[in-house]
């Protein structure tokens, strides 16, 4: 049990995919304009990571190692397609806001990275927990970045105005703001951990 908890926690902290490993940055920057988008993206990616980790680890004895990458890709792409269709049917506005970044989860380096580095070598239960941890860590990073961007760039949190009279800096919800926020956050985390 303790080991499972450790698998879960490492994705959020020491192996956080966004801040520590710098993986999967493309969607992180592109859709973190509002908290809702960031959270939705995080959930979708978590589902794909957990699902693909589960399948990959359960058939890891069957796949010949030469064709393992293509077969991982097929598994991942299948889960992404499920997410795409479900999102389009039940959350059309979110699906529209995330745009091409939903299909792009398929080439997110976190997903393939976990399948190759962890799930293909470990048991099903541990892989599920690893996937959950990575997914939650990714979601956490997304929500953190999108909170900052929404607060500064739109003056709101979850759509509610925070301070009356605050004039939001449009830059933060545009492209330069995303790069700025991630750069400063990474520098800040380096600064804190280097002590």
């Amino acid at each position: 049990m303790k080991r499972l908890l450790r698998e879960f926690l490492k994705g959020i902290t020491i192996e956080n995919p966004t801040f520590r490993l710098a993986l999967g940055l493309c969607p992180t920057l592109a859709i973190s304009t509002s908290i809702v988008n960031g959270f939705g993206m995080g959930l979708a990616a978590t589902f794909v990571i957990v699902g693909s980790n589960m399948i990959v680890s359960s058939i890891r004895g069957v796949i010949p190692s030469k064709i393992r990458i293509p077969s991982f890709i097929v598994i991942i792409a299948t889960f992404v397609t499920i997410v795409e269709l479900v999102m389009k049917a039940y959350f059309p506005s979110l699906s529209k806001a995330l745009g091409i970044f939903v299909p792009l989860i398929a080439v997110n380096c976190i997903v393939l990275g976990r399948a190759e580095a962890f799930a293909s070598k470990h048991g099903v239960v541990r892989s599920i927990f690893d996937g959950l941890g990575m997914g939650v860590g990714f979601t956490f990073a997304l929500v953190l970045i999108s909170t900052i961007r929404e607060a500064f760039g739109n003056g709101t949190l979850l759509g509610l105005i925070i301070v009356k009279g605050f004039e939001p800096a449009l830059l933060f919800i545009l492209a330069p703001g995303a790069l700025l926020v991630i750069g400063i956050l990474m520098g800040f985390i380096n600064h804190v951990t280097e002590r």
Binding site: A175, G177, M186
Partner: peptide, 12 residues
């Protein structure tokens, strides 16, 4: 990486 992102932001 952090300064690379700052440069990218300014280029953007």
């Amino acid at each position: 990486m952090p300064i690379a992102f700052i440069v990218a932001s300014l280029m953007s």
